[in-house]
Design a protein around this nucleic acid. Structure first.
Lengths: 157, 157
DNA sequence: TCATAATAGTTTCATTTGAAACTAAATCAA
DNA sequence: TTGATTTAGTTTCAAATGAAACTATTATGA
Protein backbone atom coordinates (compact mmCIF):
# COMPACT_ATOMS: atom_id res chain seq x y z
CA UNK A 1 0.00 0.00 0.00
CA UNK A 2 1.34 3.41 -0.99
CA UNK A 3 0.23 6.62 0.69
CA UNK A 4 0.93 10.22 -0.37
CA UNK A 5 4.56 10.71 -1.15
CA UNK A 6 6.62 13.37 0.57
CA UNK A 7 8.19 15.78 -1.88
CA UNK A 8 11.91 15.50 -2.38
CA UNK A 9 13.86 17.93 -0.29
CA UNK A 10 14.26 21.36 -1.77
CA UNK A 11 17.57 22.69 -0.57
CA UNK A 12 17.20 26.40 -1.13
CA UNK A 13 20.96 26.98 -1.05
CA UNK A 14 21.40 24.62 -3.98
CA UNK A 15 18.30 25.61 -5.90
CA UNK A 16 19.21 27.46 -9.07
CA UNK A 17 16.27 29.89 -9.24
CA UNK A 18 16.96 31.00 -5.70
CA UNK A 19 20.69 31.31 -6.28
CA UNK A 20 20.13 33.37 -9.40
CA UNK A 21 17.81 35.67 -7.51
CA UNK A 22 20.33 36.27 -4.72
CA UNK A 23 23.17 36.76 -7.19
CA UNK A 24 21.21 39.17 -9.33
CA UNK A 25 20.15 41.18 -6.30
CA UNK A 26 23.69 41.35 -4.95
CA UNK A 27 25.12 42.52 -8.25
CA UNK A 28 22.33 44.95 -9.12
CA UNK A 29 22.33 46.36 -5.62
CA UNK A 30 26.04 47.07 -5.64
CA UNK A 31 25.83 48.83 -8.97
CA UNK A 32 22.62 50.67 -8.22
CA UNK A 33 24.32 52.13 -5.18
CA UNK A 34 26.62 54.01 -7.54
CA UNK A 35 23.97 55.97 -9.42
CA UNK A 36 21.51 56.13 -6.56
CA UNK A 37 23.88 57.86 -4.23
CA UNK A 38 25.37 60.17 -6.85
CA UNK A 39 22.20 61.23 -8.64
CA UNK A 40 19.18 59.68 -6.95
CA UNK A 41 18.43 57.56 -9.99
CA UNK A 42 16.41 54.34 -9.75
CA UNK A 43 17.26 51.19 -11.64
CA UNK A 44 14.46 51.99 -14.09
CA UNK A 45 15.75 55.53 -14.62
CA UNK A 46 19.23 54.29 -15.22
CA UNK A 47 18.19 51.65 -17.70
CA UNK A 48 16.35 54.18 -19.82
CA UNK A 49 19.33 56.50 -19.78
CA UNK A 50 21.65 53.66 -20.74
CA UNK A 51 19.48 52.72 -23.69
CA UNK A 52 19.07 56.32 -24.81
CA UNK A 53 22.82 56.80 -24.60
CA UNK A 54 23.50 54.02 -27.04
CA UNK A 55 22.47 55.73 -30.23
CA UNK A 56 22.30 59.43 -29.48
CA UNK A 57 21.15 60.21 -33.00
CA UNK A 58 18.20 57.85 -32.91
CA UNK A 59 15.68 59.09 -30.36
CA UNK A 60 13.27 56.45 -29.12
CA UNK A 61 9.60 56.23 -28.21
CA UNK A 62 8.48 54.81 -24.89
CA UNK A 63 7.34 51.72 -26.70
CA UNK A 64 10.84 51.19 -28.07
CA UNK A 65 12.20 51.67 -24.56
CA UNK A 66 9.81 49.02 -23.27
CA UNK A 67 11.08 46.56 -25.84
CA UNK A 68 14.74 47.31 -25.23
CA UNK A 69 14.61 47.21 -21.45
CA UNK A 70 11.88 44.59 -20.94
CA UNK A 71 10.18 47.02 -18.61
CA UNK A 72 6.43 47.46 -18.84
CA UNK A 73 4.83 50.63 -20.13
CA UNK A 74 3.78 51.87 -16.69
CA UNK A 75 7.30 51.61 -15.32
CA UNK A 76 8.62 53.35 -18.41
CA UNK A 77 6.01 56.09 -18.22
CA UNK A 78 6.96 56.83 -14.64
CA UNK A 79 10.69 56.76 -15.26
CA UNK A 80 10.26 59.07 -18.25
CA UNK A 81 8.31 61.50 -16.10
CA UNK A 82 11.06 61.57 -13.47
CA UNK A 83 13.82 61.99 -16.03
CA UNK A 84 11.96 64.82 -17.78
CA UNK A 85 11.42 66.62 -14.46
CA UNK A 86 15.10 66.41 -13.71
CA UNK A 87 16.11 67.54 -17.17
CA UNK A 88 18.01 64.37 -17.98
CA UNK A 89 15.96 63.66 -21.11
CA UNK A 90 13.85 65.68 -23.51
CA UNK A 91 10.79 64.83 -25.56
CA UNK A 92 9.56 65.87 -28.95
CA UNK A 93 6.24 64.80 -30.41
CA UNK A 94 6.64 62.28 -33.19
CA UNK A 95 5.01 63.82 -36.23
CA UNK A 96 4.70 60.45 -37.84
CA UNK A 97 2.54 59.21 -34.96
CA UNK A 98 1.22 61.92 -32.71
CA UNK A 99 0.38 59.51 -29.89
CA UNK A 100 4.10 59.01 -29.33
CA UNK A 101 7.00 61.25 -28.53
CA UNK A 102 10.65 60.74 -29.32
CA UNK A 103 12.96 60.81 -26.33
CA UNK A 104 16.65 61.61 -26.10
CA UNK A 105 19.20 62.50 -23.47
CA UNK A 106 19.78 66.20 -22.87
CA UNK A 107 23.33 67.53 -22.61
CA UNK A 108 22.89 67.39 -18.87
CA UNK A 109 21.60 63.82 -19.02
CA UNK A 110 24.54 62.86 -21.15
CA UNK A 111 26.89 64.44 -18.61
CA UNK A 112 25.29 62.43 -15.81
CA UNK A 113 25.53 59.31 -17.88
CA UNK A 114 29.17 59.94 -18.70
CA UNK A 115 29.88 60.50 -15.05
CA UNK A 116 28.25 57.27 -13.85
CA UNK A 117 28.69 54.77 -16.66
CA UNK A 118 32.44 54.22 -16.28
CA UNK A 119 32.05 53.12 -12.67
CA UNK A 120 29.28 50.68 -13.54
CA UNK A 121 31.25 49.20 -16.41
CA UNK A 122 34.32 49.01 -14.25
CA UNK A 123 32.35 47.07 -11.65
CA UNK A 124 31.33 44.53 -14.25
CA UNK A 125 34.86 44.34 -15.62
CA UNK A 126 36.29 43.81 -12.14
CA UNK A 127 33.71 41.13 -11.39
CA UNK A 128 34.50 39.24 -14.57
CA UNK A 129 38.23 39.69 -14.10
CA UNK A 130 38.00 37.55 -11.00
CA UNK A 131 36.83 34.62 -13.08
CA UNK A 132 39.19 32.73 -15.29
CA UNK A 133 38.83 33.59 -18.98
CA UNK A 134 37.37 30.14 -19.58
CA UNK A 135 34.82 30.62 -16.82
CA UNK A 136 33.87 34.04 -18.13
CA UNK A 137 33.39 32.73 -21.65
CA UNK A 138 31.21 29.88 -20.49
CA UNK A 139 29.21 32.14 -18.24
CA UNK A 140 28.36 34.22 -21.26
CA UNK A 141 27.23 31.20 -23.26
CA UNK A 142 25.32 29.59 -20.44
CA UNK A 143 23.44 32.71 -19.41
CA UNK A 144 22.35 33.13 -23.01
CA UNK A 145 21.27 29.51 -23.30
CA UNK A 146 19.44 29.55 -19.98
CA UNK A 147 17.57 32.65 -20.99
CA UNK A 148 16.57 31.07 -24.24
CA UNK A 149 15.46 27.86 -22.54
CA UNK A 150 13.63 29.71 -19.77
CA UNK A 151 11.81 31.79 -22.36
CA UNK A 152 10.77 28.67 -24.22
CA UNK A 153 9.61 26.97 -21.05
CA UNK A 154 7.78 30.07 -19.84
CA UNK A 155 6.02 30.16 -23.21
CA UNK A 156 5.27 26.50 -22.67
CA UNK A 157 7.32 24.20 -24.85
CA UNK B 1 43.54 69.95 -25.36
CA UNK B 2 41.33 67.24 -23.90
CA UNK B 3 37.70 67.81 -22.97
CA UNK B 4 35.35 65.60 -20.99
CA UNK B 5 35.39 62.08 -22.25
CA UNK B 6 32.23 60.32 -23.38
CA UNK B 7 31.62 57.12 -21.45
CA UNK B 8 32.14 53.89 -23.30
CA UNK B 9 28.94 52.48 -24.69
CA UNK B 10 26.94 50.38 -22.30
CA UNK B 11 25.16 47.78 -24.35
CA UNK B 12 22.39 46.68 -22.03
CA UNK B 13 21.86 43.43 -23.91
CA UNK B 14 25.46 42.43 -23.26
CA UNK B 15 25.71 43.79 -19.75
CA UNK B 16 25.94 41.00 -17.21
CA UNK B 17 24.05 42.61 -14.32
CA UNK B 18 21.13 43.33 -16.62
CA UNK B 19 21.18 39.87 -18.15
CA UNK B 20 21.21 38.25 -14.74
CA UNK B 21 18.27 40.35 -13.70
CA UNK B 22 16.19 39.37 -16.73
CA UNK B 23 17.14 35.72 -16.39
CA UNK B 24 16.36 35.60 -12.70
CA UNK B 25 12.98 37.28 -13.26
CA UNK B 26 12.07 34.92 -16.08
CA UNK B 27 12.94 31.83 -14.07
CA UNK B 28 11.42 33.00 -10.78
CA UNK B 29 8.29 34.20 -12.53
CA UNK B 30 7.70 30.88 -14.25
CA UNK B 31 8.10 28.96 -11.02
CA UNK B 32 6.18 31.41 -8.88
CA UNK B 33 3.25 30.95 -11.26
CA UNK B 34 2.99 27.36 -10.04
CA UNK B 35 2.44 28.06 -6.36
CA UNK B 36 0.72 31.39 -6.87
CA UNK B 37 -2.03 29.96 -8.99
CA UNK B 38 -2.49 26.79 -6.96
CA UNK B 39 -2.36 28.25 -3.46
CA UNK B 40 -2.03 32.03 -3.64
CA UNK B 41 1.43 31.88 -2.11
CA UNK B 42 3.97 34.66 -2.64
CA UNK B 43 7.64 34.07 -3.28
CA UNK B 44 8.34 35.00 0.34
CA UNK B 45 5.70 32.57 1.62
CA UNK B 46 7.06 29.79 -0.51
CA UNK B 47 10.65 30.34 0.57
CA UNK B 48 9.75 30.06 4.22
CA UNK B 49 7.80 26.89 3.61
CA UNK B 50 10.69 25.41 1.64
CA UNK B 51 13.12 26.13 4.45
CA UNK B 52 10.76 24.81 7.12
CA UNK B 53 10.24 21.65 5.09
CA UNK B 54 13.91 20.84 5.08
CA UNK B 55 14.28 19.67 8.65
CA UNK B 56 10.80 18.99 9.94
CA UNK B 57 12.11 18.05 13.36
CA UNK B 58 14.01 21.25 13.89
CA UNK B 59 11.56 24.15 14.12
CA UNK B 60 13.05 27.55 13.40
CA UNK B 61 12.72 31.07 14.75
CA UNK B 62 12.04 33.99 12.44
CA UNK B 63 15.61 35.06 12.90
CA UNK B 64 16.82 31.71 11.62
CA UNK B 65 14.46 32.05 8.67
CA UNK B 66 15.94 35.47 7.91
CA UNK B 67 19.42 34.00 7.82
CA UNK B 68 18.48 31.04 5.67
CA UNK B 69 16.42 32.95 3.10
CA UNK B 70 18.31 36.27 3.08
CA UNK B 71 14.99 38.00 3.58
CA UNK B 72 14.74 40.83 6.07
CA UNK B 73 12.81 40.56 9.31
CA UNK B 74 9.85 42.62 8.12
CA UNK B 75 9.33 40.43 5.07
CA UNK B 76 9.62 37.35 7.25
CA UNK B 77 7.24 38.72 9.87
CA UNK B 78 4.62 39.38 7.21
CA UNK B 79 5.03 36.03 5.49
CA UNK B 80 4.80 34.25 8.86
CA UNK B 81 1.58 36.11 9.60
CA UNK B 82 0.03 35.05 6.28
CA UNK B 83 1.14 31.43 6.68
CA UNK B 84 -0.23 31.27 10.23
CA UNK B 85 -3.57 32.70 9.09
CA UNK B 86 -3.82 30.08 6.41
CA UNK B 87 -2.83 27.28 8.74
CA UNK B 88 0.27 26.34 6.76
CA UNK B 89 2.59 26.78 9.74
CA UNK B 90 2.25 26.78 13.51
CA UNK B 91 4.11 28.60 16.24
CA UNK B 92 5.14 27.72 19.74
CA UNK B 93 6.84 30.12 22.11
CA UNK B 94 10.48 29.31 22.64
CA UNK B 95 10.89 28.78 26.35
CA UNK B 96 14.60 29.35 26.09
CA UNK B 97 14.03 32.88 24.74
CA UNK B 98 10.50 34.13 25.17
CA UNK B 99 10.90 36.88 22.58
CA UNK B 100 11.02 34.22 19.89
CA UNK B 101 8.73 31.49 18.75
CA UNK B 102 9.60 28.26 17.00
CA UNK B 103 7.88 27.72 13.69
CA UNK B 104 7.10 24.51 11.83
CA UNK B 105 4.88 23.38 8.99
CA UNK B 106 1.48 22.00 9.97
CA UNK B 107 0.23 18.80 8.38
CA UNK B 108 -1.74 20.93 6.01
CA UNK B 109 1.30 23.06 5.19
CA UNK B 110 3.30 19.93 4.54
CA UNK B 111 0.56 18.69 2.21
CA UNK B 112 0.66 21.97 0.27
CA UNK B 113 4.41 21.79 0.11
CA UNK B 114 4.34 18.17 -1.08
CA UNK B 115 1.83 19.13 -3.74
CA UNK B 116 3.83 22.05 -5.11
CA UNK B 117 7.48 21.16 -4.59
CA UNK B 118 7.72 18.41 -7.21
CA UNK B 119 6.60 20.77 -9.97
CA UNK B 120 9.12 23.42 -8.96
CA UNK B 121 11.95 20.91 -8.76
CA UNK B 122 10.89 19.42 -12.06
CA UNK B 123 11.03 22.86 -13.65
CA UNK B 124 14.61 23.29 -12.48
CA UNK B 125 15.52 19.78 -13.60
CA UNK B 126 14.01 20.38 -17.03
CA UNK B 127 15.83 23.70 -17.35
CA UNK B 128 19.18 22.14 -16.49
CA UNK B 129 18.52 19.13 -18.69
CA UNK B 130 18.58 21.41 -21.68
CA UNK B 131 22.16 22.32 -20.96
CA UNK B 132 24.97 19.90 -21.64
CA UNK B 133 26.30 18.23 -18.49
CA UNK B 134 29.50 20.23 -18.88
CA UNK B 135 27.58 23.47 -19.13
CA UNK B 136 25.48 22.60 -16.11
CA UNK B 137 28.52 21.77 -14.04
CA UNK B 138 30.26 24.98 -14.94
CA UNK B 139 27.13 27.00 -14.32
CA UNK B 140 27.10 25.67 -10.80
CA UNK B 141 30.71 26.60 -10.20
CA UNK B 142 30.48 29.99 -11.82
CA UNK B 143 27.33 31.07 -10.03
CA UNK B 144 28.99 30.16 -6.76
CA UNK B 145 32.16 32.04 -7.65
CA UNK B 146 30.29 35.09 -8.88
CA UNK B 147 28.27 35.22 -5.70
CA UNK B 148 31.42 35.02 -3.65
CA UNK B 149 33.13 37.72 -5.68
CA UNK B 150 30.07 39.95 -5.71
CA UNK B 151 29.78 39.63 -1.94
CA UNK B 152 33.42 40.58 -1.55
CA UNK B 153 33.07 43.54 -3.86
CA UNK B 154 29.85 44.68 -2.23
CA UNK B 155 31.63 44.54 1.11
CA UNK B 156 34.39 46.56 -0.54
CA UNK B 157 37.52 44.58 -1.24
C1' DT C 1 20.70 44.70 41.55
C1' DC C 2 19.28 48.14 38.78
C1' DA C 3 19.97 50.87 34.81
C1' DT C 4 21.53 50.55 29.94
C1' DA C 5 22.02 48.37 25.86
C1' DA C 6 21.00 44.86 22.63
C1' DT C 7 17.87 41.59 20.33
C1' DA C 8 13.37 39.39 18.31
C1' DG C 9 9.69 40.61 16.24
C1' DT C 10 5.67 43.99 15.08
C1' DT C 11 3.44 48.13 13.66
C1' DT C 12 3.05 52.51 11.49
C1' DC C 13 3.31 55.55 7.81
C1' DA C 14 4.90 57.22 3.55
C1' DT C 15 6.31 55.57 -0.88
C1' DT C 16 6.29 52.28 -4.64
C1' DT C 17 4.10 49.12 -7.41
C1' DG C 18 0.71 46.74 -10.56
C1' DA C 19 -3.63 46.00 -12.62
C1' DA C 20 -7.24 47.95 -14.67
C1' DA C 21 -9.57 51.88 -16.43
C1' DC C 22 -8.92 55.68 -19.13
C1' DT C 23 -7.56 59.30 -23.07
C1' DA C 24 -6.09 60.33 -27.49
C1' DA C 25 -4.50 59.14 -31.87
C1' DA C 26 -4.13 55.75 -35.59
C1' DT C 27 -5.80 51.80 -38.21
C1' DC C 28 -9.20 48.83 -40.07
C1' DA C 29 -13.46 47.37 -42.33
C1' DA C 30 -17.88 48.14 -44.39
C1' DT D 1 -16.15 58.25 -45.18
C1' DT D 2 -17.54 56.69 -40.44
C1' DG D 3 -18.02 53.49 -36.75
C1' DA D 4 -15.38 49.89 -34.38
C1' DT D 5 -10.83 48.32 -32.95
C1' DT D 6 -6.18 48.74 -31.82
C1' DT D 7 -2.26 51.09 -30.04
C1' DA D 8 0.67 54.58 -27.17
C1' DG D 9 0.85 56.34 -23.12
C1' DT D 10 -1.30 58.09 -18.53
C1' DT D 11 -3.95 57.96 -14.41
C1' DT D 12 -6.28 55.90 -10.62
C1' DC D 13 -6.80 53.07 -6.77
C1' DA D 14 -5.79 49.27 -3.97
C1' DA D 15 -2.14 46.35 -2.34
C1' DA D 16 2.87 45.60 -1.45
C1' DT D 17 7.04 47.47 0.37
C1' DG D 18 10.70 49.67 3.32
C1' DA D 19 12.42 52.55 6.85
C1' DA D 20 11.88 53.93 11.23
C1' DA D 21 9.60 53.78 15.54
C1' DC D 22 7.85 50.75 18.82
C1' DT D 23 7.06 46.58 22.35
C1' DA D 24 8.71 42.90 24.91
C1' DT D 25 12.34 40.24 26.48
C1' DT D 26 17.17 39.17 27.35
C1' DA D 27 21.99 40.37 28.12
C1' DT D 28 25.50 43.47 30.07
C1' DG D 29 28.02 46.12 33.35
C1' DA D 30 28.74 49.29 37.24
Amino acid sequence: MTGPVAAPRLDLAAYLPYRLSILSNTVSGAIAAIYETRYGLSVADWRLMAVLSMEPDRPLTQKALCARTRMDKVQVSRAVKRLLERGHIEREVDNGDRRSALLRLTGQGRAVYDDVAPATLEWERELLSRLTPAEAAILDTVVARLQQVADEMAAGS
